[in-house]
Amino acid sequence: MSKSFGDVWIFGDYRDYFQNRITLQLIAKGKDLAEMLNTGTTVVLLGEQVHQYAMEYVAHGANTVMVAEHPKLKEYEVETYTTLLSQWVKSYRPEIFIAGATSFGREFFPRLAKRLRTGLSADCVDLEVDPKSLLLVQTTPAFGGELLAEVVTPDRRPQMATVHPGVFRELPHNSEAVGRIIYPDVDVFPEPRVKVIRSRPPIKGKVSLEDASVVIAGGMGLRSKEQFELLYELAELLEGEVGATRPAILSGWADEERLLGQTGKSVKAKLVISIGTSGALQFTTGIQGAETVIAINRDPDAPVFRIVDLGLVADAAAVLPILIETLRRRL
């Protein structure tokens, strides 16, 4: 007799929805995982007046949306969310439960896993169901990003993971989709120990790496801030944005908001040109969602060449001005 599995659950993180696409990316991946397990995809959604998000999640592929609508859920409150979701998990028994590795997911998902006495892999860069064991294989950077570890949770349920934004692609919006919506009774809330006085969005600059279709990424191979600043000229010519590796940022060549990789941003650009970057894993996890990656590095053995579509072995500092000048003439 074949084993039957609970649904694949996805936490509906709708704050800053039209920029934050992580839930939609997870729905797409959740569908793949659910298909392997012959089960469904459910998005859990907590808040007040969240109707439009429920509809969006169905449009992007969710089979079911499980909704708690209540004024007490209007503000994110970790104890309330943890208590409510642990009750739901115990009641509905999902096989897998995933959330985005956003500030939101990173705060409450470990608490939820602890409450449920199950494992959690943080900041995963890939998820697959092993076809033999049917366990969720959670790929996550380990040892400071030097290794990619494959983690499984053989005994405890649900199998839980947070996923780095940008590593999966969302499905297109389908207005004709119809799903199922469930409203579990929610009338018991813990008395919160934190009172939200006011919330306001962070002041944002103009950098929008996640939405850029072209990203020029620079690393220490550029050798100076002056050379690094040429990347902005190249980005302007290609109507793109500039990203940077951690060492480049630590050298003061760019602001933290331009950080690409494991602890920074992940891009899903059409084109990434990576210039003077060695290709350390903690950096390449941020660009692996790009459609095409071109790298320029003088070291032919640089790890970056293992992941690129086109590689140029050259001194980045020498090539960059030529590239800019050539593009200037042609564009």
């Binding site: 509809m55 969006e56 389908n174 004709e176 119809v178």
Partner: peptide
């Protein structure tokens, strides 16, 4: 719980 269908549109 209560449940219904839901349209994306």
């Amino acid at each position: 719980y209560r449940e219904s269908k839901i349209s994306a549109h």
